[in-house]
């Protein structure tokens, strides 16, 4: 068991959250959509795993580099 951080690549506002805690996802699955400069920008699962926490709610501002969710792998 290892945990892996899903990190926001851009600064933006959380537009929608596409997964729930406990959900199993593949590598590359879209976890969350941020709105940044009129575009909707996804945060991808960096690896296959189970979502163990989601750190932000819809409408909250996320800074580039922030951990938005944590996955448990293995």
């Amino acid at each position: 068991m290892a945990s892996i951080d899903a990190v926001a690549e851009v600064t933006g506002v959380v537009f929608s959250i596409l997964v729930e805690v406990g959900e199993t996802v593949d590598e590359g699955h879209e976890l969350m959509i941020l709105e940044s400069m009129k575009m909707e920008v996804p945060v991808y699962a960096p690896a296959a795993g189970t979502v163990s926490s989601i750190r932000f709610d819809e409408g909250e501002v996320v800074e580039q580099g922030a951990v938005v969710a944590i996955l448990t792998t293995g």
Partner: peptide, 13 residues
Amino acid sequence: LPASRTRGYDMRR
């Protein structure tokens, strides 16, 4: 490729 033209995606992928 997302359905919406305002939806981003990672071209590297």
